[in-house]
Design a binder for these strands. Structure first.
Lengths: 125, 125
DNA sequence: CAGTATCCAACGCGATACTG
DNA sequence: CAGTATCGCGTTGGATACTG
């Protein structure tokens, strides 16, 4: 079974939810959303990106950027100077992802306390 | 740094995106969304749920349900009969999560091909 | 029926060291 | 500057067996 076999309530009837898990596989890891957020205002170089995202290792920055590039969410531009210079930038597709992520953000802000309380209640019992 | 330290473009200005990663921690695992989708039409018993979600093990169904229950997204009702009967149901909070998930779904459907092609191109080079 | 318990393989990620 | 290579640990999740 895939998520697509089950349908969520939708704006228009008959629409299903194929591929939701695929998005989570895209940006559901530890760092992708931080990178996307860090790139929202324009191109950023590798080490600058690293400085902006506190706690990320060089290795994970490279790996995560490769994934985002592979999926067409981020573009990589190499300027063959010495020393080399590489700029990462959101593609249009990558930028368009900010909208649904915003919807999640709003939900999170609205339900943050609900969840905290639910957890406290559950852990108490 | 948290995601909240970076702001996404928003409907209203000055709004940030705190807690996005927290949602991913809530439902970003392998099975949560399948369970939520399976519960959208009303309460379902344990083994029925298991039958509806192809591939999930008994163990993972239990664990994932406990997590959703703890976070207040799913409620668990025990009918102390013999044999026991347990019904799981989306809470209002859990149900409200379907909306932002829908936004992600729509994005996925719109960008599915883009992503496939991007991957094909990347893997070819 | 609705779980628990145990074991284990795969993966994600961090730390560290090295390079064109 | 912008990476790659290697190692190792902790977590996730699957398989299987057992239980009130």
């Amino acid at each position: 079974m895939t998520l697509g076999d089950m349908d969520f309530p939708t704006p228009g009837p008959g629409h299903d939810c194929r591929m939701v898990r695929e998005i989570l596989d895209l940006v559901g890891d530890k760092w992708s959303l931080y990178i996307i957020a860090s790139l929202k205002d324009g191109p950023v170089r590798f080490n600058e990106l690293r400085r902006r995202i506190d706690g990320i290792s060089q290795r994970m920055l490279t790996i995560t950027l490769r994934g985002l590039e592979r999926n067409g969410l981020v573009s990589r531009t190499l300027f063959p100077t010495i020393p080399p210079r590489v700029e990462y930038e959101l593609t249009d597709v990558g930028r368009s992802l900010l909208e649904p992520v915003m919807a999640l953000t709003l939900w999170a802000n609205a339900n943050q306390l609900n969840i905290q309380h639910a957890r406290a209640r559950y852990d108490a019992s």
